[in-house]
């Protein structure tokens, strides 16, 4: 698997896939996409990078342990639900903040934060599974 071409090519491919995954995540509310799909794409990116260049370099690249990322995702997912308490509404009632910046309408919302949480959970958990299995192959 570790051909020179693959090893040279993989970092760029992975970076592009992560970028694409974020794009898929953000457009998810209006077009096909969302946190689950984005997360899976990013996890695949990590897996490809891991196969090509070794798990150690992936772990260096993402700085945090994948399960920490996953846990953080779950945390902000739950946190997004609590914001509605400030307006005395039930848990997970969605809150919207829509404004214009440089002539573009930007919609910030708790479902978006929640979707980011989903994304991080999936990247972290699936990435962790893939990386730990790859690690077994290389050790």
């Amino acid at each position: 698997m570790r051909t020179v071409i693959f090893r040279t090519f993989a970092p760029y491919l992975s970076a592009l896939m992560v970028l694409f995954s974020i794009f898929v995540l953000l457009r998810g509310h209006n077009e096909p996409g969302g946190g689950f799909i984005g997360g899976l794409i990013a996890a695949s990116a990590l897996a490809i990078f891991g196969i090509a260049c070794g798990v150690a370099s992936v772990r260096r690249a993402i700085v945090f342990h994948p399960m920490s990322i996953s846990g953080f995702g779950l945390f902000i997912g739950a946190l997004a639900g609590t914001l509605s308490f400030f307006k005395d509404q039930p848990f997970m009632t969605s809150q919207w903040l829509i404004f214009e910046m440089f002539g573009v309408e930007i919609a910030l919302s708790t479902p978006l934060i929640f979707d980011i949480g989903v994304y991080l959970v999936v990247v972290g958990a699936i990435g962790s599974i893939a990386l730990s299995l790859e690690e077994r192959e290389t050790d």
Binding site: G28, H29, G34, P111, F114
Partner: peptide, 10 residues
């Protein structure tokens, strides 16, 4: 949201 599936999910 215009993607109904995603709106249901999140």
């Amino acid at each position: 949201g215009r993607n109904i599936v995603n709106v249901i999910l999140v």
